[in-house]
Design a protein around this nucleic acid. Structure first.
Length: 219
DNA sequence: GACCAGGCACATC
DNA sequence: GATGTGCATGGT
């Protein structure tokens, strides 16, 4: 599997070049984006983040203090605006109470301690937690998302119903932990998913096709 | 006018 | 523990 995942990364890098994934000007904005993008297209998230910025709400203190309706209005374009308002507030409350609202202080916490903390926040599940850990805190966790599962599943590398933690472990056990590479790898899988693995699959043009032609992956 | 999008919590069996 | 459902808007 190590060789397969190395090959996968090389093929995608050759095809796309650097992705500079994840969009976001600050660690806090990255964390906000992680919550807002839950089951939602990023184009809609961008509108919501722009709305928050326009209201000067892109900081934990402001989100905790302002009227709920103000946040809901800003979040409307990205859907689920009521639940996402609650989830953003839950994250801000946690960040405020545990780290005085500082993403920098949060990032100083060890991965082993921080991941369970995040998962304990209402509205933060495995993928959202790992987005925050990798892209906002620079922790070496491999982010698994719907694209990761779909791409590897369609190419027969894993079963389509593989559990989140199992798929994460598949990557983390097979490849050397490297924050920058993990960031790029996930970005490349998102690019690939958007281009070739949506509802009208274009598998023949998928950059992973050469990988399969080279020979089926080992275990 | 369906169907889908970078999930998650909660209820129920 | 597995499965189903609500959450909501915008693009294709």
């Amino acid at each position: 599997m190590r060789k397969t995942l190395d090959n996968l990364y090389r093929h995608l890098t050759a095809h796309y070049g650097p992705t500079h994934w994840w969009p976001g000007d600050t660690p806090f904005e990255v964390a906000v984006g992680a919550v807002l993008t839950q089951n939602t297209a990023w184009t809609n998230v961008e509108k919501a983040i722009a709305g928050l910025k326009a209201e000067h709400l892109l900081e934990p203190g402001a989100l905790l203090e302002c009227p709920t309706e103000l946040i809901e209005t800003a979040l409307r374009p990205c859907g689920y605006f009521r639940v996402k308002t609650k989830r953003l507030r839950a994250f801000c409350r946690y960040l405020d109470e545990r780290y005085g609202g500082s993403m920098t202080r949060m990032a100083e916490t060890s991965l082993e301690d921080l991941r369970p903390e995040l998962l304990d926040v209402n509205g933060i599940g495995p993928e959202t937690a790992d987005d925050i850990l990798l892209y906002a805190c620079d922790k070496p966790v491999f982010v698994v998302d719907a694209y990761t599962r779909r791409i590897l599943g369609r190419h027969g590398l894993v079963t389509a119903d593989i559990a989140y933690e199992e798929l994460r472990a598949t990557f983390e056990d097979a490849i050397e932990p490297d924050v920058q590479m993990f960031k790029e790898y996930h970005g490349l899988l998102v690019y690939t998913g958007k281009d070739f693995c949506r509802r009208k699959p274009k598998c023949a043009a998928c950059p992973l096709q050469p990988l399969l032609e080279d020979g089926q992956p080992e275990g």
